[in-house]
Each structure stands twice: as structure tokens, then as C-alpha cells.
Amino acid sequence: MENQLSFSTDLRGKIALVTGGTKGIGKAIADQLAQAGAQVIVTARNRPADSDSTHSFIAVDLTQADQVTQLAQQVQDTYGRIDILIDNVGGLTTPGGGFQALSDQDWEQELQFNLLATIRLDRALLPLMQNQKSGVVIHISTGAAKQPLWNLNLAYSVSKAALNCYSKALANEVASQGIRVVAVSPGAVKTPLMEQFLEDFARNEGIPLEDAFTTVMGKMSGVPLGRMAEPEEIASLVRFLASPAASYITGVNYSIDGGAYPIA
């Protein structure tokens, strides 16, 4: 008898964990997964100021191996399973200026935050998915991994490019166990971190804030849609990819950048 496939985007009964889920893209993803019916756990280093959040919260620093182990144990003890893992935590934490401006500490910091934190958490939680023979892992990457700007985000771009390679390899490894792994690469998104980046860039370059976006986007061949994405636009793609409707999608990296990437 053939397997009965579901093409629904309904996530009722699913347990989802979103790292960096208290603001920006992570919060938008957590909210949309919950709207689809999932029970959502969010993690961050600090408890969110939004006390009205309906999501469960676990404080954790994913760069610390012992805290990741504790997180995985807490998820197992409390929920007994994990169906959707959104590795969203990451960001640009190092200065621009090219390779000579970056110290060993800068490189290590960026790799810890944007690559090793994800690998560490996957290693801790994927055994639950392997036991249940199902699950979805989505890594939030960046378009900068394909279009690095040497004078703005070199270490960040390199760390996320490594994440893309890891995502493909992991997808191939666990596909036969019923687990899908997908990467999503946003372009410029209107988040507090991006707004702060543009403010810093404008100040350092001595240009008006309204010119900063145009200048930065121009370095990436521009954005045909002419604007930054809203976090909810990224979240809507993630919501679909996490659902049964995307059951035959794995090992793929989706660009969602308003057309900024210059090749097909």
C-alpha cells in the first residue's frame, strides 16, 4: 500500500524549537509556526521583554557546549520529541575593513556564533528525530554567503558559507532516516540588527541614513524589488518548508532576497 502523503501546512501536534526566537526573523518564525498550530519553544541568551509571548522560553548560550547539552535534556524531559528545529541564531559581530582588520579572535567568534552553535545544537537534538524517524531542520543562512563584501562582512560571509556546505552534507546524511534539512538565505531584512548595521555604516561613511541602504545594496548589485524584506516574509517561507506540504524538499538552499542575487 502506498504511503498517504499530506500536503497540508497544518502543524498541529508538532513541537518546534526556534533559536534566537525572541526578536527579528526568529520571532516572526516562532509566531508563524504557532499560528500554524505548532507548540513553539524559543531560545535566546536573555528572557524576552515581551511578557505576553505564548511561546515557551529557555535561556541558553549556544556557544557553550554544556548549556546546549542541558537544553537538549530539557526538551527531551519536557516534550519527549522535537519535530521542527529552526537554527536561526547568528549575526554579524565583527568589524569591516578586509582580512587585515580581522584578528584570530574575530574569526573564532564569528565561526562560533554562525556555524558551530548550529552544529552543536543539531548534534544534541537530531538523535530525537532519528529515534522518531521524522523531523525537519532549517538553517537560517544569508545571501552574503554567496555575495561576500570583503570590506563589510568578510568573516560573517565565510562562516555562513560553511553553514551552507554543512547543511547540504547533513541533508544527504539523514534523508534516509526521514529527516529533512533545508537552508534559507535571506537578503536584507528589516530587523533591529540590520537597522543598527545601516546606522553604523552611515555614521562611519559620513553619509545620510537614507543613502546607506542604497549604497550597501548597490555593492550587491542592487535589489530589484527596491526594499528590504519584512521578517514575516522570511517566516512565511520557513513555515511552508517546515510543513508536510514540503515533504519532498531537502538539501536545498532557498534565496529570499528580492531578486538581489545576480544569477539564476
Rank of each mutant, 00 (worst) to 15 (best):
M1K: 13
L5K: 13
F7K: 05
F7N: 08
G13L: 05
K14P: 07
I15Y: 01
A16V: 10
K23E: 12
I25S: 09
G26V: 10
K27C: 10
I29H: 06
A34N: 14
Q35P: 14
A36I: 01
G37Q: 07
G37K: 12
G37P: 10
V40G: 11
V42Q: 09
D50S: 13
T54G: 15
H55T: 07
H55G: 11
S56R: 14
S56Y: 03
D61A: 09
L62H: 08
T63M: 08
A65N: 10
V68A: 13
V68W: 00
Q70N: 12
L71N: 06
L71D: 03
G80N: 07
R81Y: 03
I82H: 09
I82V: 13
L85K: 08
G90C: 07
G91L: 05
G96V: 04
E108G: 05
L111S: 03
L115G: 12
L116S: 05
L121S: 09
L125V: 14
P127V: 01
M129N: 09
Q130H: 09
N131A: 15
Q132S: 15
S134E: 08
S134A: 14
G135T: 04
I138V: 13
I138E: 02
T142M: 02
T142V: 04
N151G: 01
N153C: 10
A162Q: 06
K168F: 05
L170P: 15
A171M: 10
E173F: 09
A188W: 13
F201L: 15
F201V: 09
A202G: 10
G206M: 04
E210Q: 13
A212T: 04
T215P: 00
V216Y: 11
P224I: 01
G226N: 01
G226S: 03
L237S: 09
F240Y: 15
F240P: 11
P244T: 03
P244M: 02
A246I: 07
S247D: 04
N253D: 14
Y254Q: 03
S255P: 08
G258R: 04
G259D: 04
G259S: 04
A260E: 06
I263Q: 12
